[in-house]
Design a protein around this nucleic acid. Structure first.
Length: 233
DNA sequence: ATTCATGTTGTGAT
DNA sequence: TATCACAACATGAA
């Protein structure tokens, strides 16, 4: 689950704010606040704070539980129940996050990302995009889509991009995050993928290359014709 | 039926 | 000490 999906989760769970949990360990505590930071869902109760991460396969349901699955956490409220599945849940004392790097945050600051890029010239752009300390909330789908939109090869090094191109990369990461959010909300995300899990390049029709790239070795989908690798000079 | 993949963390080796 | 590679986790979709 990527950042924009967490914002949607935040909106859906905010519906239960101010209500008391009626079951389990948190019984009697009210849900005070619901936030997200990158791929983290942050729940503040009267006495505890929970950080929930959905990893690759995590999910949540409201009111309708999954059949034959035991939720990691179940929160029963007066007006509904939230079920969390296959996620990592951690109780923390404080939420200490730098909101200026969260792509979905109002506090997001492109200068922060630019500064990080200047310091990581040797990194491939496919790796830096996935770096949660630079682009918090950006996942593998978004990585592929952002790179295609800018016609960049995943293995181009950060330092091989001009400063203008770096700026475009940062801006596009932000812009696509919101586009992802809109499409996801309308349930049309998949049909709007341009390169991710596509067989043919939508621009030139050539076969899409699919292979792990960068030191993270996460799968990249890209067109070798439209996305040329830029070499440092 | 089997393999893959929207992700992170911890462990042990180098 | 720092970095690296890999396992573990868990599940719907291809």
């Amino acid at each position: 689950m990527e950042g924009p999906s967490l914002v949607i989760a935040t909106e859906e769970l905010s519906f239960f704010k101010k209500q008391k949990v009626q079951n389990g360990k948190l019984k009697g505590q009210a849900l005070i606040d619901v936030q997200s930071w990158g791929k983290h869902l942050l729940l503040t109760f009267t006495e505890v704070k929970l950080r929930i991460h959905f990893l690759m396969f995590g999910s949540y349901r409201i009111d309708v539980p999954r059949e034959n699955r035991t939720p990691k956490l179940e929160l029963r409220f007066k007006t509904g129940t939230v079920f969390f599945y296959s996620c990592a849940i951690k109780e923390v004392d404080e939420f200490q996050y730098d909101w200026s790097i969260d792509l979905m945050s109002r506090a997001w600051d492109p200068k922060k990302a630019m500064k990080a890029l200047k310091n990581q010239k040797e990194k491939m752009i496919c790796d830096v995009l996935m770096d949660q300390t630079v682009f918090s909330g950006l996942g593998n789908i978004m990585k592929n889509e952002v790179l295609f939109r800018l016609r960049h090869h995943p293995e181009t090094k950060v330092g091989a991009l001009s400063s203008g191109q770096q700026k475009r990369l940062v801006e596009e990461a932000r812009e696509y995050s919101f586009q992802f959010y809109e499409w996801k909300k309308k349930n049309v995300l998949k049909r709007n993928w341009l390169i991710f899990r596509k067989k043919k390049c939508p621009a030139c029709g050539k076969k899409v290359t699919k292979r792990p790239t960068g030191s993270l070795k996460r799968l990249s989908h890209y067109c070798t014709h439209c996305q040329k690798k830029i070499s440092a000079c």
